[in-house]
Design a protein around this nucleic acid. Sequence first.
DNA 1: GCGACAG
DNA 2: ATCTTGTCGC
Length: 236
Amino acid sequence: MTTVRIPAGWPATEERARAVQDELRGRVVLDEPGPPPGTGRVTGVDVAYDDERDLVAAAAVVLDAASLTVVAEATAVGRISFPYVPGLLAFREIPTVLAALEALPGPPGLVVCDGYGLAHPRRFGLASHLGVLTGLPTIGVAKNPFTFAHEDPDAPRGSTSPLLAGTEEVGRALRTRDGVKPVFVSVGHRVSLDNACAHTLALSPDYRLPETTRRADALCRRALREAAQVSRSPAD
DNA sequence: GCGACAG
DNA sequence: ATCTTGTCGC
């Protein structure tokens, strides 16, 4: 586990954070298909918080895309770098997530984020932001819809319906389990929407959420518990 | 102005 | 995200 510090120059206000998004948005690459589903490596990242102790823990879990077995993992802990503001989630999660990714012993391959990419008020959600900063192919898989119109997909697993910003399809509601609430997929960086959905489906053979986010969620919670434990100990 | 709003 | 018991079902 590595310890992170908030980067110098990290935006301190919502206005500055939005300006950063507007500046970086132009670097997103949307015309690459990305790695084929079911091959290579896929990495899930997630973050857990303890606002009381001002602690944040991130995890990165690398899976073999074909077998969905864990091939590597890493965690990082740090101080909370930004409050939760809808539309500015990346500024709360990215420093610690980056540290966890950098702590991995090998390349992450495709990165699956908890949240949105293109399906964002300024088209630059967490997955887009992480992709631009790392250069890695990224997608976003969210558990809840943001403010985009969509219809409920048909009941069978694999059914989709578009997330619409006006007439622009910025993502898809994707049913990963028959009759169960869909997940909300959008493109981050260097991956097509079709491929993002195919990856998400391939990563979710048994549960609503992809194995990547399930594994990363469990690991970052454990890392947070351990970090909180240290902060309670007499040595502190 | 009011409500909604990824994690 | 996080606070939280039991409960229904495979």
